[in-house]
Design a protein around this nucleic acid. Structure first.
Lengths: 146, 146
DNA sequence: CATAGATGTAACAACAAGAGTTACAACAAG
DNA sequence: CTTGTTGTAACTCTTGTTGTTACATCTATG
């Protein structure tokens, strides 16, 4: 199955917060408008991003802001913040291979390290892409429209 | 969400077919015994692996065999064969960002290439791991047990 | 200090994919 | 023709995602 859209929505959210920070109060309703989903979906994500120390959300008066330099936030940080996959394991292992079978009882031993290696390759790549890049590219695309 | 267990089961299946090819007729029931799932789950996977040219399955009399050298089968081949993710896209993009919003209407432009880059990193890593390695390592683990 | 406009969160419904199971037709080989 | 398989349809069960309503809580401000 695919990685939850929470991940791409979260990136979208951050791009919006930064882009509109000077011109609008960036509320969950505002963000919901840009992403085109229910505000509650946004609020849930804001909570996860906040818990990860990526943003601050002001209760009561409203609005979200980014908590640290964009260059210090990577796609990996967001990916982890929003629980894109269950308990950090990208691959779903079939639970109970037969312990009576020599192959069955050794599958985990053999595969765990390989799967981890693959997952790490993906996460490393994510770690190399910052939100700053994404925001800058977004701005350049917006420029081109004019 | 996680990548379907079809993937790890398929690897398990190949390891079994190779390991037991001289001593047993490797039927879907036999495999189901080692993996510990319903034989139909196995047969469905065998069909997908067969369609990808990785194995041959003999109808009627029964049994599966691997169709090409183990060193020419990578984790990536299996991953693709069993449709581990929907239509080849690892990331689920939220469908309808607001076209009225400059950020919303450019999100795809910006993210598509980044997400592809991440996915490719993962797939490249998968492509570098062969079933031969996996089978050899399995055998070495079985040796160690004695 | 009451209120307007937010957030925080619970609860639940709708939906989709994964995975398990039963059942049975098609087939191959003795 | 019988036996043991494969191939596949049809269904259920379960789980995670996503959408939605509802409401308590909070904060700035008039």
């Amino acid at each position: 199955m695919q990685i939850s859209s929470r991940f791409t929505i979260a990136i979208h959210i951050l791009a919006c917060i930064d882009t509109f920070k000077n011109d609008y109060k960036v509320t969950s309703d505002f963000l919901a408008g840009s992403v085109n989903v229910n505000p509650v979906v946004i609020r849930r994500l804001l909570q996860q991003l906040k818990a990860a120390g990526i943003i601050n959300v002001t209760r009561g008066s409203g609005g979200a802001e980014i908590a640290k330099p964009l260059s210090e936030i990577t796609m990996l940080d967001i990916y982890k913040a929003v629980d894109s996959i269950e308990n950090g394991e990208l691959f779903h292992f079939h639970e109970n291979p037969n312990k009576e079978c020599p192959v069955g009882r050794n599958m985990h031993n053999v595969l765990d390290s390989k799967l981890e290696q693959v997952q790490r390759a993906m996460e490393n790549e994510m770690g190399s892409i910052t939100i700053q890049e994404i925001v800058e590219e977004t701005k350049s695309f917006i420029q081109k429209e004019l």
